[in-house]
Design a protein around this nucleic acid. Structure first.
Lengths: 343, 343
DNA sequence: ATTGAAATTTTACGCGCGTAAAATTTTTGT
DNA sequence: ACAAAAATTTTACGCGCGTAAAATTTCAAT
């Protein structure tokens, strides 16, 4: 390892004995140069430890080899998990992922889109804030930059949406709950940040109707992304009011359910599927922590892998075909029922 | 809003009637131009919606106005929360944060450092993998790029470390547990990914000694970052073996504790501080979910805000003073005891 | 109105690399 | 060993912006 500092590709060309254009090709795609050349470069590389300047590369390349990833709230383990999966896949595909979180703020989401626009990425995978997204802004962005929207749909915006089949989630778990006990009441937020909630609600209504039961919905007050807090606080209110028509509660999502479980515990309600229990509680999402709640949470899990993979694939397809037919494609993945001990 | 596409600063100079160098100044610091000029630019900006190219800016600027943030595992809500806090602060300070996660992999951590190096950021806030970090690699990086290491210390590496006072954490909670009941046994990983664990272990030993009790440690088998899984599986093993000397268990961190709580639940052990309970369980970290476990988890919480803020401040200080005295500074924050119902 | 300071414009060059075209070298197939 | 194909080198220009220096304009204050 020499201690001469290599400042740019020019200098590295000198010390490696390879011309700069060939080096440029090499760094863009290692396989694109002859094997003997590759070896020479790699030898020099281990000797001098040079890396092309990140900004200069991306300023000049037509294909930026950069993929933007935007999630609405990174402190939510759900998105942490998604981000992890997608990042890993991007790297495997030879791209540099750039990860952003909107932190639940509309303004920040717009700023991130601006930044991404100026980065001229190959494409963007965007999980929008949802209800608080600036729909027009997002729509314009999708027109300018190849973008796949995932997780949370914005109607008619963008070319591709990849997400979960929320109605299927609810009908799956409602059917299960009915079959193994009684029809569930539905616990949700009055003004949920994520539009999936609306579809789950609708799914609940139609699933109950299909089974010939009367739906019963409790709407939790509260705004924002502190879902567990809301589930806990409003759950206590709900329990105290004694107004539920069913001893089976289906929560609109796992984070709400986690809060609701805490409420049950604090109120001395024994949660579970077995005879001696007071109440059954189920959620939806397959939250990374749902396995470790007490009792472990019965839920319908997203197919994280499939959503991540399909989102990326859709992006690549979109890039090949151009923005194509003007058609809008939606791909919804079914959820998997995780039967655990809470319901 | 005109529909003419502005391709670069040159074109924007034409339509705004302001010269390019002045525009350059403006985008670097809005306050650096005369108010009347600023207005003209802002008018044109709302009319034409131009943004300077991200890469071209950063390639040429001496001060990049970019701050790299690296965390070891983003799917861990602890780091999600830290990342969120730091990102927000960076933005407020007028910097563009670039967030990376090592996803628990040594190789990826090194790659990220390489990428960051080529990005020539103003500075980097690095929470290393810890035990699996490539210490020499990190050390070299710290020499080249102004870096603050946080959360997980690597001995003698870097100029500044900001983290938590782990011995204080343990002595605080050991003291509390002893005072309100009996001295705790210690539940930890045999080969923890994070070096803080070692300090907590040492803290436990000395705290017990100080109080005149005999320590009792149970070491959980298992590798990696699936801490809840390990806590659950090994917790069951631990409980089944009936080998604990105490009915009070202090877990080395909250994620382990969350798994251990699940183990207790599955084994029919009633967890809590009250008389009728079988076992008391406490953790450390102040994990975002610790409030919602059943029962809610007694723990010692990091001062997230303080750590985030101090890390950034230290970075700025470091930039002003140059790398300075060659001294290594460590700032450790005390934890706050969160007395809840599990212990 | 005059003067000096402050801000802006003009002009010009550089950053590190992508990339195209033509000239040259190396490799491959026969 | 030869011609054709493939890879590499040479040469040269461009990307979008930062930034320095000199010339000019604008501003504030006397």
């Amino acid at each position: 390892m020499s201690d001469r500092k290599i400042r740019n590709m020019e200098e590295f060309a000198e010390v490696s004995g390879i011309s700069r254009p060939t080096l440029s090709k090499f760094f863009h795609d290692q396989e694109s140069v002859r094997a003997s050349t590759r070896e020479k470069i790699e030898t020099a590389l281990s000797e001098y430890d040079y890396r092309p300047n990140f900004f200069a590369i991306n300023q000049n390349r037509k294909l930026t080899k950069t993929i933007g990833i935007v999630v609405p709230y990174l402190a939510d383990p759900f998105f942490g998990e998604i981000a992890r999966t997608i990042e890993t896949m991007c790297i495997e595909a030879g791209y540099s992922p750039s990860l952003f979180s909107s932190h639940g703020k509309r303004e920040l989401e717009n700023e991130i889109l601006d930044t991404l626009r100026s980065m001229k990425p190959t494409g963007v995978l965007l999980a929008p804030l949802g209800r608080s997204s600036d729909a027009d802004y997002v729509a314009q962005f999708c027109k300018d930059i190849p973008t796949v929207i995932f997780d949370s749909n914005i109607e008619d915006v963008g070319t591709v949406f990849v997400g979960s089949d929320n109605p299927q989630f609810t009908s799956l778990i409602v059917e299960y709950l009915c079959r193994t006990g009684e029809p569930p009441s539905f616990f949700e937020m009055k003004t949920p940040p994520n539009p999936n909630a609306r579809k789950r609600r609708a799914g609940y209504l139609s699933a109950m109707q299909a089974q010939g039961y009367k739906p019963d919905i409790f709407e939790a007050e509260g705004e924002g992304w502190a879902l567990e807090d809301i589930g806990l606080r409003e759950g206590i209110k709900y329990i105290d009011s004694g107004s539920f028509k069913s001893k089976t509660i289906l929560c609109s999502n796992d984070r709400l359910a986690i809060g609701f479980l805490a409420a049950c515990f604090q109120k001395g309600l024994k949660v579970g599927i077995t005879e001696e229990c007071d109440i059954r509680v189920a959620g939806m999402d397959g939250h990374p922590f749902s396995k470790f709640t007490c009792p472990s949470l019965t839920t319908v899990s997203h197919d994280y892998e499939a959503i991540s993979q399909r989102s990326l694939e859709s992006l690549f397809l979109m890039l090949e075909k151009g923005k194509g037919s003007g058609m809008r494609m939606e791909k919804l993945f079914e959820g998997k029922l995780l039967m655990r001990s809470s319901a």
